[in-house]
Simulated scan of single mutants.
Amino acid sequence: MSALICGSMAYDTIMVFHDRFKNHILPEQVHILNVSFLVPDLRREYGGCAGNIAYNLKLLGSEPLPMATVGKDFQPYAQWMSYCGINQEFIRTVEESFTAQAYITTDMDDNQITAFHPGAMSHSHLNTVPTDRGIKLGIVAPDGKDGMVAHAQQFAAAGIPFIFDPGQGMPMFNGEELLEFVELATWVTLNDYESQLMQERTGLKPEELAKKVKALVITRGANGSLIYTDGQCLEIPAAKPKAVLDPTGCGDAYRAGLLFGLLQDMDWATTGRIASLMGAVKVETAGTQNHSFTLAAFRERYHENFGHSF
């Protein structure tokens, strides 16, 4: 039994400007902005929600099935997925497009200027949720808008339980559209900011949203997470990272932990703690797919953090 992961695959090009943007952007001249930043440090990372979630779920010993649309430049990423042993059966190449990519420039104050090109991600609706692969559950993560809508409907029609994870795709949807997702979904996961936005757009408090699904998960970074289920709210403590280097991708790592627990039919207290530890492991390494561990080592860290085993 496996998990189908619907979402984006992307390249992240990350550049570091060894100064501060504020020293080069004059507020009184922003209407004629024309600036150039020298960026001596540059790295290109493999990313995208589907790619990140699949990578982390594979580390936990599961067999993820990422489903995404990619471009003609995807070969290096495909080679990396092959190296990691991740199934690519449901990765569709759109030859006239580039793979989605983000260009991120960070200054010494950790301010960021980002340009995002959706590329092939805009064609995600061309993929269809398969119904003949023994898929136990799925997730609808940030992707092209039409694809997110179609895949949620297809999961529901096929009777496959799934997580709705709007993430950075939330601004694409109004309150009515978000409620339609919630009505179709089995579980919903949000970070604390997204939770506030969901409340504003739907008019529903977390307790009210939770009544529409089997569980509502709200992550709060270093403050842990909340899981609303069966009329109660479980407080999941944050695991302790050995270092805090890069929070990018922590949410995807956490969601991989949720999928792992659900695939194993674990209780929510255990599932939430596994997800919490996945986020802590990720934050210790720069980039979204550069961390690694053995399952035995992960189990040991779990015991160290929470005082029991799974």
Rank of each mutant, 00 (worst) to 15 (best):
V149L: 12
D143N: 15
A157Q: 12
G167P: 05
I163K: 03
Q153H: 15
A157R: 13
G134W: 05
Q154C: 06
G134Y: 08
Q168F: 01
G144S: 11
Q168M: 03
Q153Y: 13
P142Q: 13
D132T: 14
D165P: 08
D146N: 15
F164C: 09
D143W: 04
M170F: 02
I135W: 09
K136T: 10
R133Q: 15
Q153P: 06
A157N: 11
D165S: 05
D132H: 07
R133K: 15
L137A: 02
Q154T: 04
F164G: 10
F164N: 02
D143R: 06
H151I: 09
P166F: 01
P142L: 10
L137T: 05
K145R: 14
Q154E: 15
I135L: 05
M148H: 09
D146H: 15
A158R: 03
H151F: 04
A141V: 11
M148D: 08
A158K: 00
A158Y: 00
D165Q: 11
A141R: 05
M148I: 07
P166I: 11
M148Y: 10
F155M: 04
A157I: 09
D132Q: 12
H151Y: 12
Q153S: 14
R133L: 14
R133G: 00
H151N: 13
A157T: 03
F162I: 06
P166R: 01
L137P: 00
A141T: 11
F162A: 06
I135V: 13
D165E: 07
K145F: 09
Q154H: 06
D146Q: 15
A152F: 07
Q154A: 11
G138P: 11
A152G: 15
K136Q: 13
Q168T: 07
I135P: 03
A156Q: 15
F164P: 10
K136E: 02
D143Y: 10
F155S: 03
L137M: 14
A157L: 02
I160V: 12
I160S: 07
Q168V: 07
A157E: 13
Q168C: 06
Q168D: 02
R133T: 12
I160D: 08
V149Y: 04
G169K: 07
G167H: 08
A152W: 06
V149C: 08
I163A: 05
Q154M: 05
I163L: 08
I139K: 02
A152I: 00
M170T: 00
P161L: 01
A157S: 11
M170Y: 04
A157P: 09
F155K: 00
D165Y: 04
G159D: 01
G159N: 03
P161F: 11
D146L: 15
F155W: 00
V140G: 01
K136Y: 03
D165A: 05
M170I: 08
I135D: 11
D143A: 14
R133S: 12
D143H: 14
G147S: 11
I139D: 10
G138R: 09
D146Y: 15
A156I: 09
G147L: 01
D165I: 04
F164L: 10
G138W: 05
Q168I: 02
P166C: 00
M170Q: 06
G167V: 01
D143P: 05
P161N: 09
G159M: 09
G159Y: 01
R133F: 09
V140C: 05
G169T: 10
G144Q: 01
